[in-house]
Simulated assay, not measured.
Amino acid sequence: MTALGDLIEIDERTVLVLGQGLDLDRGQPDVANALVHRAGETLVLVDTGVTEAFRAALLEAAARVGPWSRALVLTTHGHLDHVGNNDLADGLGVPAEHWVPAPDLDQMRDPVDYWVRSFARVAGPAALPDPARTAARVVSLFSPMRPFGRTTRTYEERPPERFRTGPLRSTGWTFADGAVRVLRSQGHCAGHVIVHLPGPGVLHLSDEGNGPCGAMADADQLKIQTVLGSAALLLEAGEAGILTDGHTFAVRRGAEAVAHLEGLLEQAAALGEAALGLVGEGKPVTPGGFAARYGRAMADLGIGGANPNTLFTAMSAVNQLRELGLRPESGAVDAPWSRPPLRNPEPAAPPTG
């Protein structure tokens, strides 16, 4: 049984700081796992979670991997459970840098608006009479929220670099004289990155491994699956030996890590097949009805993902409808979705006489 702030030592200079799950009924925010590493004289913090208790755990982990004389804080994406203590970069008493993905700046500045847009898509399927009120309630759980510091800059201000890591080609940025690689992934949300530490052989997926189907409005299902496949490739090639992420409270090594990734990919294929069967032969479907059947299919397949609840299941269901090529027939709440016609309608014949 794990608790918020528990530390898992990967090696003498690398620690995974464990977060906690979301519990809306109890008013408990989820807190993402964070990775703490020392690369030479540089302290590296990959995400900072949220809550004062987690902040204290980060400082404990930083002391454990020390000593260090400068700091590097890396944000994998802008979701609330990953960014609340980002101002730590300002308070460590050493020269520090803080880097965030540019596509996520808007949601970091105005998280309520981001979540309103996410929840409005599922007002019908999730029975949300007031998406704005729900968004404000969710955001209020994450406190204190300090996503920016004096040194915050975006990764995209740096020239992109091209990497070849074993069999994998990718783009991103390096830090700490190449000891830290930040790779663009952008599946879980628009700005998402993953982090590779070649020294200890750690690949941190953050939230790209949250489940077989992304829930957020800016999720990209193909990119999620591409990241999972690329991660398995790096592990099989020996370019990484340890897999960590944002919401499963475990450190996976070698074959176990590959099996975990293969399992997620198999779940994605099985869920897509099940969803296709639920859509049927071209008849319109309502997101509400589809989401209920989709949730049962997930349960039958044993698929959970991070923070399973009816709200996130509905969000995933809407994304799955779009993934299957369906589109809403109108802007009404729970309007039917159907496949757009493959051809434009024939023009009307001109009048005669």
Results as ranks from 00 to 15, higher is better:
residue 6 D to E: 02
residue 6 D to H: 12
residue 7 L to D: 08
residue 9 E to W: 08
residue 10 I to C: 03
residue 11 D to R: 09
residue 11 D to Q: 09
residue 19 G to T: 08
residue 23 D to H: 11
residue 29 P to M: 01
residue 32 A to S: 14
residue 37 H to G: 06
residue 37 H to L: 02
residue 37 H to D: 07
residue 38 R to P: 00
residue 40 G to R: 00
residue 40 G to H: 11
residue 42 T to Y: 13
residue 46 V to N: 01
residue 52 E to L: 14
residue 64 R to F: 12
residue 66 G to V: 04
residue 67 P to I: 09
residue 72 L to G: 04
residue 78 G to T: 13
residue 79 H to D: 13
residue 82 H to T: 15
residue 82 H to R: 03
residue 83 V to C: 12
residue 84 G to K: 11
residue 94 V to L: 05
residue 94 V to K: 00
residue 94 V to T: 03
residue 98 H to V: 01
residue 99 W to P: 10
residue 105 L to P: 06
residue 118 S to C: 13
residue 120 A to C: 04
residue 122 V to A: 12
residue 127 A to I: 07
residue 128 L to C: 05
residue 129 P to C: 09
residue 134 T to S: 15
residue 146 R to F: 03
residue 147 P to W: 04
residue 152 T to R: 11
residue 155 Y to A: 07
residue 159 P to N: 12
residue 162 R to K: 12
residue 174 T to P: 07
residue 175 F to C: 08
residue 175 F to G: 05
residue 183 L to Q: 03
residue 188 H to N: 14
residue 191 G to N: 05
residue 194 I to C: 01
residue 203 L to M: 07
residue 207 D to F: 15
residue 210 N to V: 05
residue 217 A to T: 15
residue 222 L to G: 12
residue 227 V to L: 08
residue 228 L to W: 01
residue 230 S to T: 15
residue 232 A to R: 10
residue 233 L to W: 00
residue 234 L to Y: 09
residue 242 I to L: 02
residue 243 L to M: 01
residue 249 F to D: 15
residue 259 A to R: 09
residue 261 L to N: 00
residue 264 L to S: 10
residue 268 A to I: 01
residue 268 A to T: 06
residue 273 E to W: 08
residue 274 A to K: 10
residue 274 A to G: 14
residue 274 A to F: 09
residue 280 G to I: 07
residue 282 G to P: 08
residue 283 K to D: 14
residue 289 G to V: 14
residue 293 R to V: 07
residue 293 R to S: 13
residue 295 G to F: 04
residue 296 R to M: 13
residue 301 L to T: 11
residue 304 G to D: 13
residue 308 P to T: 07
residue 309 N to T: 09
residue 310 T to Q: 15
residue 310 T to Y: 05
residue 311 L to P: 11
residue 312 F to C: 10
residue 319 N to M: 06
residue 325 G to F: 03
residue 326 L to W: 03
residue 339 R to S: 01
residue 341 P to L: 06
residue 345 P to D: 04
residue 346 E to D: 13
residue 347 P to L: 04
residue 351 P to A: 11
